[in-house]
Amino acid sequence: MTATALLLASTGDADISEAFGKGLTTRDWVVAGIILAASIAIGQVAKVVLQRVLRSDDTDVAITHFAASALRNLIVLAGLVYALGVLEVRLGPLLGAIGIGGLAIAFAAQSILASFFASIILRTRRPFRRGDQVVLGDVEGTVEEVNFRTVSVRTFDGERALVPCDVVLGDTIVNLTARGRRRTTFEVQVSYETDLGRAIGVLEDAMAGVEGVLDRPEPRAYVQEMADSGITLALLVWHAPEMMTMWQVRSDVGVAAHVALVDAGIEIPFPQRVVRFRADEEARTEVPDVGDGTVRSLRRRGPDPNRDTRDTDDDGDDGGDDGGDGGD
Rank of each mutant, 00 (worst) to 15 (best):
P217A: 03
D252R: 14
T294G: 01
S229V: 04
V274R: 14
V259K: 15
V255N: 13
G230I: 00
P241G: 05
A240I: 03
G302H: 11
V275P: 00
G212E: 03
P305D: 09
R216Y: 11
L261S: 02
R216W: 12
P288R: 13
V223W: 09
E267C: 00
A260E: 01
V223E: 12
D289V: 09
E282V: 15
P288W: 15
R301W: 14
S251H: 15
E242C: 01
P241S: 08
R250C: 02
S297L: 12
V262H: 09
A256I: 04
M244K: 13
L233S: 01
M243I: 12
E281S: 06
I266D: 02
V287F: 14
M244H: 11
S297C: 04
T294S: 14
A234F: 10
E242D: 14
G293R: 08
V262E: 13
P288Y: 12
T285R: 13
R250H: 13
L233Y: 04
H239T: 15
P219M: 11
R278E: 01
L236G: 00
R299K: 09
E267G: 02
A227M: 08
R284D: 02
E242F: 06
V249C: 01
S251M: 10
A260Q: 00
R276E: 02
V259W: 07
G212M: 05
V237H: 04
Y222L: 07
P271M: 06
E211L: 05
V253S: 03
I266Y: 04
V259T: 15
D289S: 15
G291R: 14
P241V: 05
R278G: 00
I268E: 07
E225R: 14
V210L: 07
V287I: 15
H258C: 03
A227I: 06
V295I: 15
N306D: 13
